[in-house]
Design a binder for these strands. Structure first.
Length: 302
DNA sequence: CAATTGTGGCTCCTTACGTCA
DNA sequence: TATGACGTAAGGAGCCACAAT
């Protein structure tokens, strides 16, 4: 009996995308829901592999279609100074990297945004406000205090749209090169650091789930082996009992006490399975008793 | 050409916060 | 309303690969 105990190739595991090369382009992401290239893709100057615009969350689509199809709460909310300050606070932990590669891309204080969909306005408001209006109402002042103190770590909750967008990207490639990271950050109006962290955490979650699946698989293997061991122990007892009750077999080499491959039972008697010649052979080989039986059956002198 | 150094990305572990039952 | 469990964004340490010196 052979058991495959490979951690590396568990075909049942639902993470096939992990094996995809990270340099693959994003074919799916180039398409809209209708399967047509998005407007942004048509006009984008980015290299094909890093085009991340599209999907239901494409800012172009949002800007071209009414929000009735894809409700975007933050697009309908007023954009006042308070909200901008909230964004600044949220982005505080990621400022170090923005300083050199992404600050200008997603700066909420920028009066002219190149992106029709301003994710920045939702970082705190849309998501929280949508679920808990009361909490949202008190958010601005509290955040402002923390912002001035600069001592409290603020935590950003990505919107469902942003998370879904990142998920789609993750399905295509679990790691990002700098260009892809920047493009995605630009697309979602997040800092590159936030995108990077999201992918890191996402990989960690995937690995954790994979570990759980592997653990479950090994657990089942262990149970199977335990059962097999129990069965073999039982058969060993049968063998020993047979050895005690039938001293005739004690004269034979140990190899003559074999197990029938067809029925997986100890060969105390010739197997009746006429279709398994090998089993019959095993049962009769080197057996004086068997030779006698053969001689009698076929009239062959022994 | 080998050693050193700086940089960026990764994993792993942890913390802090938001949400929900 | 308070609370604990859970999910997750983010910080930090350590490691590695790679390019520049």
């Amino acid at each position: 009996m052979e058991l495959a105990l490979s951690l590396g190739d568990t075909p049942k595991l639902p993470f096939s995308f992990l094996d995809k090369p990270t340099k693959d382009p994003l074919p799916n992401l180039f398409l809209t829901q209708q399967g047509k290239p998005s407007e942004l893709e048509k006009t984008s100057s980015l290299d094909p592999p890093i085009q991340l615009d599209l999907l239901p969350f494409s800012p172009v689509l949002r800007s071209h279609h009414s929000s009735s199809h894809l409700p975007i709460p933050w697009l309908t909310q007023p954009c006042g100074p308070v909200r901008e300050r909230e964004l600044d606070v949220n982005r505080f932990p990621a400022m170090t990297e923005e300083a050199d590669d992404g600050a200008s891309l997603s700066s909420p204080s920028s009066s002219v945004s190149p992106f029709p969909m301003d994710f920045s306005m939702r970082n705190n408001n849309a998501e929280y406000g949508g679920r808990n209006k009361r909490e949202n109402e008190g958010e601005a002042e509290r955040v402002s205090d923390d912002d001035e103190n600069g001592s409290t770590r603020k935590k950003l909750r990505l919107s469902k749209d942003q998370s879904a967008f990142l998920e789609e990207s993750f399905k295509e490639h679990t790691t990002l090169n700098p260009k892809q990271k920047l493009a995605l950050a630009k697309q979602l109006n997040l800092s590159p650091r936030q995108v990077e962290v999201w992918f890191q955490n996402r990989r960690a979650r995937t690995k954790l789930k994979q570990t759980e699946v592997d653990c479950e698989y090994l657990k089942r293997c262990c149970e199977t082996l335990t059962e097999e061991n129990r069965r073999l122990q039982k058969e060993l007892q049968e063998l020993r009992a047979l050895k005690t009750n039938q001293p005739f077999y004690m004269q034979l080499p140990a190899t003559t006490l074999t197990m029938c491959p067809s029925c997986e039972r100890v060969a105390t008697n010739p197997c009746n399975n006429q279709t398994n010649n090998k089993a019959k052979t095993l049962h009769f080989t080197n057996s004086q008793q068997a030779q006698q039986q053969k001689a009698q059956a076929h009239q062959i002198p022994s």
